[in-house]
Amino acid sequence: MHDLIETYLDRIAGLKSDETHKTFTSNMRQFEQWLNENDYDICNIEPLELEQYFIQMNNEGYAPNTVANRFESVRGFYQFLSDKLGAIEQSPVEDLKRSDYVQKGTKKHDHAELVYITPEEKELMCENVPTPTLRNELIIRLLWQTGVRKSELVEIEIEDIDREARSIDVWSNKTKEWRTVYYQPSLDLLMEQWIDGGYRSSYMPAEDSPYLFVTERSDQMSPKTVNRKIVRQAAENADIQEVMYTDNAGQKRYRITAHTLRHGHGVQALKSGIDVRTVQKHLGHAKLEMTMKYLQLVDSDVREGYRRFGTSADD
């Protein structure tokens, strides 16, 4: 991969979530392949030449969301070269409009893409976590009860936890803000066993680590480990995992991930009667509109429940 692209992706890794970094990496890999196929210089491409990339994706039948995501990745890359590195005088994307290449009304996040897991599925995952089982069950239950992002989970330090109040101060690299989340008494025993019962201290890196979760080799767990080796593996062990689709980059997209645990928390919180603004604050959503999407899912569940009720209830 080109050095400038790698530098750009390194910056994305420091600013965005692991999932966003993964998406940007895939997008930029596809873009670089197109540049090479057309013998374009990465720093000397003209706007009209670059426009052909987005037109070609439309002609090849790429989904509007895919085109939109790749447009944003490429635009961010050239803004980075221009504004941060000074490698080019002006971004070739500056005069291009995303709306010219993406169908009107297309949004980056569609309601249909909001997948969440149920309490029953969460319990199945907890019963089928990979080893070490105590640590990994605590991680899944903590993700479910707090709704924190996996990138936030791995940044939690022991001193951030008030075990008497059952609260955790969480720092978000996404919003650049602290917020406080809460967990339930049902986690007290797992938390005590992990921190005080010798489980965490049995890992050699734990002695000098401030972080709540460590591994055998590292003093801080990575978001990728949380998602792939714990959450997705637990779902596979429970036989409830499925591949939703394979994207245009050839990457499999799984139904159950760390983020669907977060969605599950949001939906369950609203079902429990917690008001939407409190849920927004707890999840760290910058905009209320994102939290409101969970209400749509709750409404869908209510409608489906009444349909089942209507077909099975006595007159």
Rank of each mutant, 00 (worst) to 15 (best):
L190Q: 03
D239F: 12
D275N: 14
T260Q: 01
S201K: 11
A249H: 10
V231D: 07
I195S: 05
L190I: 04
R255F: 03
M221E: 02
Y182Q: 10
E155I: 03
L153A: 09
A238K: 05
E192C: 07
L261W: 12
A235E: 02
T257F: 12
I161M: 08
V181L: 10
L270A: 10
T175F: 02
Q268H: 15
E192Q: 13
Q241M: 02
I240D: 11
R232W: 08
L283I: 08
Q233D: 04
E236I: 12
S201I: 11
M244I: 15
T175R: 04
I195W: 02
L261A: 13
V181Q: 08
S202Q: 10
R217S: 14
I274S: 12
S272Q: 15
Y183P: 05
I240Q: 02
Q193N: 13
Q280D: 01
I240C: 11
E177H: 06
S172H: 00
H282W: 14
Y203M: 09
A269M: 15
I230N: 07
A249Y: 13
Q241F: 09
L189N: 15
Q220H: 11
L189F: 15
R262Q: 03
L153E: 06
Y183E: 05
K174T: 07
Q268W: 14
V214C: 08
P223G: 01
R232T: 01
V170L: 10
W178N: 14
V279S: 04
G264Q: 04
A234V: 01
R255W: 12
E164I: 15
L283M: 11
R228L: 14
R166F: 10
N248F: 12
L283T: 01
G273H: 12
V226M: 09
H259A: 01
N248K: 08
M204Q: 15
S151A: 12
E207L: 03
K150D: 12
E159A: 14
D239C: 04
S222E: 03
N173H: 12
T175W: 08
S201G: 01
N248Q: 13
H259K: 06
E207K: 05
K252T: 00
Q220A: 00
A238Y: 06
S186A: 14
G198S: 03
M191S: 03
Y211F: 14
R149L: 04
T175K: 05
M204W: 13
E164G: 13
L212F: 10
W194V: 00
A238L: 04
W178P: 02
I158E: 14
N237I: 03
T260Y: 12
V243P: 00
G198H: 05
V267Y: 06
Y182R: 09
R179M: 03
T257I: 06
D160L: 09
S222P: 05
S201Y: 04
V154L: 00
E207Y: 03
R232G: 06
H263I: 01
S172I: 02
K174R: 05
R262E: 00
R277F: 13
R200L: 02
D219Y: 11
I168G: 07
T257K: 10
E152P: 11
D219E: 13
R200P: 00
K281D: 14
L270R: 09
R232V: 07
L283S: 02
A249C: 04
K174M: 08
A165I: 00
P210K: 11
V226P: 05
H263P: 08
Q251E: 14
D169A: 13
S222F: 09
R277P: 06
S172N: 01
Y183W: 10
S186H: 07
S272Y: 12
A235Q: 01
T180R: 13
K271Y: 00
V279P: 10
